[in-house]
Design a protein around this nucleic acid. Structure first.
Length: 626
RNA sequence: GGACCCGUAGCUCAGUUGGAUAGAGCGUCGCCCUCCGAAGGCGAAGGUCGCACGUUCGAAUCGUGUCGGGUCCGCCA
């Protein structure tokens, strides 16, 4: 339970049986570094043991606040702990006094080389270099699974992202959510959660009716029915909405499948009864197919597609509303008009309302439109109730920031059905090219589809770049920078580090034989020669990987993985550059096989860790940059 | 009128959930390299963390207020 208490936002909701997974993690950590893979967690256990000796009877909730972290200032050592500061009040003693006792206790630990009290009561630790070197065999034997954790074991998580109207191709506005959701799902899976990636198809509303009309127009064109776009638009209720070329193939497909059967007997526009449903269904199927292709090109392949229309037709909405009624969470009432915002034809109206205020929302929310049909919200309630019924302990929805006002009501609804919903909002992406913002507008013809972006930049650069910002901050996507082969492009910088590692490993195989540089063989080599500051800095960075994964998962912030990899690449490039000026510092030294093998082990572990991180991001590691 | 997000170096952004002297890249300035380990390397300057109170051993981080930018506010999804 320690990890659970240490964070405000556990991987899984409180009070579920799934929290038992955290007990497992605590036990694993107690058994040592090898079991947990997380050297910081392992040292924390040792610090806690020492603290309990220094301060007998320390309450669990105080111990839970003890942290072992890398210090900002490397001069302070390898790790720092706030243990004495945290324990001082409960112990009724001065922090410095506890720190001093803690230092004495920790100096007896075989992992600890140096310990010292500093500042208001911090304890700084320096581990023996051997402790850090000991990570290499672990990493080499574990492979890309290095950084995997059991923190989320037993937690079933549903991550829903990209969900959109199937009314057209994916565009850049969808792209960020697709990447963030996919990487977040990967991150939670790496943390031990049982993750389902899901797409909710909004195919039940008015938008798909408008889409059907637009497709019908293209069908008429395919059959050369003589009608202009303007003339047709006058006939469509609300006017023709989707005018893009992308529906032309749909019209042709409809003509091929149905011939003239969807026309009136006179060869003209027929009553909607005669064509709307088949046109709609064919169009949605084709649009959805294109969306899935576009997403696949981005590397996004989701496990489950839920159709809103199927939920509605199966009666799921009626059932969900009935359940809410049974629980007394639904009533008929009149909402106040929003203040400060004038709505033209506002008139007080009695509506079916959900008591969202009982769960923390600001107002109760309508479930029915004036024509008696359900609102989108009502359908969404049924959808999320269904997720909880399917057995998910946690739901995470990734939405665009324009849905921010929708978060509280959906979380309220999730709670009403006993579920837990986290929402990750993705802010707007401004696309830059040649230093100029590309204004996206369908009319101006500067509308950028996901496919366009992928053709120009490639999926790896798109995914990595989308993860170089916190998702709730606006970001600029500079197309020129994303394809640049320079230091300022983090995609290149990280890929380049991996390619350099692989290059060294290929050369090492030439020099020493492939068998000698296989991971299993490298896991057994002598590592004592690794003692340069830059080598140890890289080792420490590698040791921070499991900790970074866990923190990113708990915070639901996959962008942290991108920053970790950039830092790791930086550490590696420093080491590489040492060999530029002084050939004795190069990784491969033909006359010094022991040192060479140690360095090759370090390089191999670096490549492995980079791959482990890129896998979370869904970015392909490259073998060479030529 | 209200809700949510953001405000950190000239620019674009991190900041390990409250820790020590706030960081990176670009840009600027200085030095080095420019054949064999390649698209560069080393270093410097640059900050009232929008502002004001508050919480405590300790605040960029939490609370309240305020200013600025963004998104949204019954039958679009």
């Amino acid at each position: 339970m320690r990890l659970h208490r240490r964070h405000d936002r556990p991987l899984c909701p409180r009070g579920t049986s799934a929290t038992d997974g955290f007990v497992g993690l605590g036990l694993t950590v107690c058994e040592g570094i090898v079991m947990s893979h997380n050297i910081f967690a392992a040292v924390r256990v040792r610090v806690l043991a020492a603290l309990h000796r220094v301060v007998p009877g320390l309450p669990d909730e105080v111990a839970a606040r003890v942290e072992v972290t890398p210090p900002r200032e490397p001069a302070h050592g390898d790790m720092a702990t706030n243990a004495a500061l945290v324990a001082a009040k409960a112990a009724g003693r001065r922090p410095q006094e506890i720190a001093a006792a803690l230092v004495a206790a920790l100096l007896a630990d075989p992992l600890v080389a140096e310990a010292g009290a500093a500042g208001p009561g911090f304890v700084n630790l320096r581990l023996h270099a051997a402790a850090w070197r000991g990570l290499l065999p672990l990493i080499l034997r574990t492979g890309e699974a290095y950084g995997d954790s059991t923190a989320g074991a037993g937690v079933r998580v549903n991550v829903e992202y990209v969900s959109a109207n199937p009314t057209g191709p994916m565009h850049i506005g969808h792209c960020r959510g697709a990447v963030v959701g996919d990487a977040l799902a990967n991150l939670l899976a790496k943390s031990g959660c049982d993750v389902t990636k899901e797409f909710y198809v909004n195919d039940a509303g008015n938008q798909v009716t408008a889409l059907a009309w637009a497709a019908y127009f293209r069908y008429l064109q395919a059959l050369e029915v003589p009608i202009t776009e303007a003339g047709f638009s006058d006939i469509v209720p609300g006017g023709l909405q989707y005018r893009g070329d992308y529906l032309i193939p749909v019209g042709e497909a409809l003509a091929a499948e149905f011939g003239t059967a969807l026309l009136s007997p006179e060869g003209w526009i027929a009553e909607t009864d005669a064509w709307l449903v088949p046109v709609r269904d064919v169009t949605i199927a084709m649009m959805l197919g294109q969306i899935r292709e576009d997403l696949a090109a981005l590397g996004v392949v989701q496990d489950v597609f839920v159709r809103e229309r199927e939920l509605v037709e199966a009666g799921a909405v009626d059932a969900a509303i009935a359940r809410l009624e049974a629980d007394g969470l639904v009533y008929r009432g009149v909402l106040e008009p929003p203040k400060g915002k004038t709505i033209e034809d506002w008139e007080p109206r009695e509506q079916l309302l959900f008591r969202a205020t009982q769960f923390g929302d600001d107002v109760d929310r309508p479930l029915q439109k004036s024509d008696g049909s359900y609102t989108y919200f009502a359908n969404d309630i049924a959808y999320h109730a269904g997720k909880t019924a399917r057995g998910f302990d946690l739901m995470i929805d990734v939405w665009g920031a324009d849905h921010g006002g929708y978060v509280k009501r959906m979380q309220s609804a999730a709670k009403a059905f006993g579920g837990t919903l986290d929402v990750v909002l993705c802010q707007i992406v401004h696309v830059l090219k040649g230093g100029q913002p590309l204004r996206m507008s369908k009319r101006a013809g500067t509308f950028i589809t996901l496919r366009d972006l992928l053709d120009e930049v490639g999926p790896d650069a798109v995914r990595f770049t989308m993860l170089t910002r916190k998702s709730d901050a606006q970001m600029e996507f500079d197309i020129d920078q994303a394809v640049a082969q320079t230091r300022e492009n983090p995609v290149f910088y990280v890929q380049y580090a991996h390619a350099r590692c692989r290059s060294v490993l290929r050369a090492a195989a030439e020099l020493l034989g492939a068998a000698a540089v296989a991971p299993a063989a490298l896991a057994g080599v002598a590592l004592d020669s690794l003692e340069h500051a830059a080598e140890l800095a890289l080792l420490r960075r590698l040791g921070g990987w499991p900790r970074s994964v866990e923190a990113a998962a708990v915070a639901r912030e996959p962008h942290r993985i991108a920053f970790f990899l950039s830092d790791l690449a930086g550490d590696f490039h420093v080491l590489w550059n040492r060999g530029r000026d002084d050939s004795a510092l190069r990784f491969l030294q033909p006359d010094r096989p022991v040192e060479t093998l140690a360095r090759v082990a370090l390089v191999a572990a670096t490549a492995t860790t980079i791959r482990s991180g890129l896998a979370v991001m869904g970015v392909t590691p490259v073998e060479e940059m030529r």
